[in-house]
Amino acid sequence: MQRDADGVASSPHIHSGASVAGVMRRVLAALAPGVMVSAWFLGPGVLLQIGIATVAALAAEAAMLSVRGLAMRPFLFDGTAIVAGVLLGLAMPPLAPWWLASLAAVFAMVVVKHAHGGVGHNLFNPAMAGYALLLVCFPYAMKSWPAPGAEAWAADVLGAVFLVDTAKVDAVSGATALSFVRDGLRGMKMLAELRPGAGASLLGGGAAWVNLAFLGGGLALLAARVIRWQIPAGFIAGLLAVSLLLYLGDAQRHASPLFHLMGGATMLGAFFIATDPVSSPVTPRGRLVFGLLVGAVVVLIRRFGQYPDGVAFAVLLMNAAAPLIDRHTRPRVYGERDTR
């Protein structure tokens, strides 16, 4: 029996041309507008953090591929490490010291990704797991975001990030709008009392513009059919539903649904983080359920939790539930009377 060198003899004999690297390239392209708007409002620190996280992620990926004896070229440049680095960099406070982003990126690649079997096998979203590690271990450093309107430009940023000059960080830092509102509300203040002091506005610091930019990129991904509508739609619906319930319950003690929709990492989370295919469910109904739950938990963490934003922990929590969700949302098979 003769077999050919050039691949499998099994059908099909043609292919659409889709590739993992192609998918990741389109994700990166769709992230670009949001990255640029973030850098516009928060300064060049955003780009610096993305650079640090991406380089660290690629280095860790290369080291793990080498240790595991896997082919370097196809896996290192499949785009998954770069996307994880960019998402992690976006989550970092722009003035955080360089080793924080590096530590998170190495943790994400080595422990979260490769220790679980590498690309396609991680249970948790690597970028969010790396970010969560920092939130838990270095909560103070992770809360220091540039105050709205603060002038933090090139020299200051480099000093803060690489020389770890805390004076410079403190000079320009303040609570984010999300933290500000939550801490204020926890201090038994009314929402109306908070409004005048919160920087330019509660949607200040360009958060709304950043969210709109990520929304635009996300819609482009949807149009290119790189992601499906279920997770983003579920995420936004869950977020709006829970925040609306709270808001209707007591409008003085809860931020408005619009604030949740346009604040924090809502759109980044809905279109780019929760949609990570590896760690989310795969059935269409399961994705909708997953999105709804992530969106709901985001609001609960923002309102009742300890952290600046809820997206990372909400996504990680539901990552753990993804296999269960998949199991209970299997579609009916052609010709079968019942699902299971």
């Binding site: 889709a18 396609g120 059935t283 269409p284």
Partner: peptide, 16 residues
């Protein structure tokens, strides 16, 4: 066909 490099499944769900 050009040499096909297979990657692990990333659970994108396109097949579903």
């Amino acid at each position: 066909a050009a040499e096909d490099c297979t990657m692990p499944c990333i659970r994108c769900g396109d097949c579903v």
